[in-house]
């Protein structure tokens, strides 16, 4: 369950830019990893428990996004996607080669001093909290001025720009917000694993899974990522346990292929079914669409 909540939080955060504006980031795991390293360092050097400092992980990731984001959000389509992927790779590479960050072996975090059961439930509640926060923020963005701008960008960026919207600023704001949320989740995750290494917290599989879930569920609305994260987490877990991890990954890959044919995801399919019903009743508006 804890993992499902984590993925809900991650794919919701990703949706703010990737879904609403259609800027598909392949490298969100960079922000996740930065969050994890921030809280880990704070624990080891300052002695602050990550369960208190995880918002700082978000701040660090958001700052990072604000610094590197400006040139990146001006790229289009797959060029944006590839560059975000490269940012994740480079960040991971830098961490691997920085002894102060533990290099490839990473940082070992002493677990919270409490019974294992309590430990588990603690993380459960924290991830649930993050899932709620991320979903709430994303839902709020959807109906906000920012969301309106992002959706205008998705529909036609040139028109949005001509209408006077500062699209670069809007995209950057969305990226920073999205990165901040992702970093907070990462800050908790590192502590949960009690072991922070580049392999674990910059794992590209996490980076792909989180946006696959958003796309699969439907990333035009905030309900989609929740749906996608729950269904795919359960599916992935089921396949991994019963057949093997590779098969689970193959299934994820196939979902990604599938998503291209249903750009509005499950939510979009559900919408269509309900709209068709309205057509059956002779709704004029629906017919025109």
């Amino acid at each position: 369950m804890t993992v499902i909540f984590m993925y809900i939080a991650l794919s919701e955060s990703w949706t703010i830019l990737g879904g609403y504006a259609g800027y598909v980031s392949f490298g969100h795991v960079a922000f996740f990893g930065i969050g994890a390293y921030t809280t880990a360092l704070l624990l080891l050097h300052v002695g602050v428990n990550p369960l208190f400092s995880f918002p700082l992980g978000g701040v660090a990731a958001a700052l990072f996004a604000a610094v590197v984001g400006y040139p990146i959000v001006r790229l289009q389509g797959p060029y944006f996607s590839i560059v975000t992927l490269l940012v994740a790779l480079l960040t991971s590479l830098v961490v691997k080669n920085t002894p102060a960050l533990g290099g490839t072996t990473g940082l070992w975090l002493p677990l919270p001093d409490m019974p294992i059961e309590l430990n588990r439930t603690t993380f459960y509640w924290f991830m649930l909290f993050m899932a709620l926060v991320a979903t709430g923020v994303t839902a709020w963005v959807e109906n906000s001025k920012l969301g309106l701008g992002l959706m205008a960008i998705r529909q036609n960026e040139a028109v949005a720009e001509a209408a006077g919207a500062n699209t670069t600023y809007i995209k950057l704001a969305a990226l920073v917000l999205s990165a901040g949320l992702t970093g907070m989740v990462g800050g908790i995750y590192g502590y949960l694993r009690s072991y922070v290494t580049p392999e674990i917290v910059f794992d590209l599989n996490i980076g792909v899974t989180l946006f696959l879930m958003a796309l699969f569920g439907g990333c035009r609305r905030w309900q989609g990522p929740v749906l996608g994260a729950v269904i795919l987490s359960v599916l992935g877990e089921f396949l991994t346990l019963n057949i093997g991890e590779e098969i689970a990954r193959i299934a994820y890959g196939l979902c990604l292929v599938l998503v291209v044919f249903f750009p509005d995801g499950l939510v979009g399919i559900i919408d269509k079914i309900t709209v068709n019903r309205k057509v059956a009743f002779g709704g004029k508006h629906a017919v025109e669409r």
């Binding site: 797959p78 996607s81 990954r249 890959g253 196939l254 990604l256 292929v257």
Partner: peptide, 17 residues
């Protein structure tokens, strides 16, 4: 370009595994 990049990322993951 974007839609094919998502499609082919999926294909690549399938092939790798």
């Amino acid at each position: 370009a974007l839609s094919t990049s998502i499609l082919t990322l999926g294909l690549a993951i399938v092939l790798e595994n």
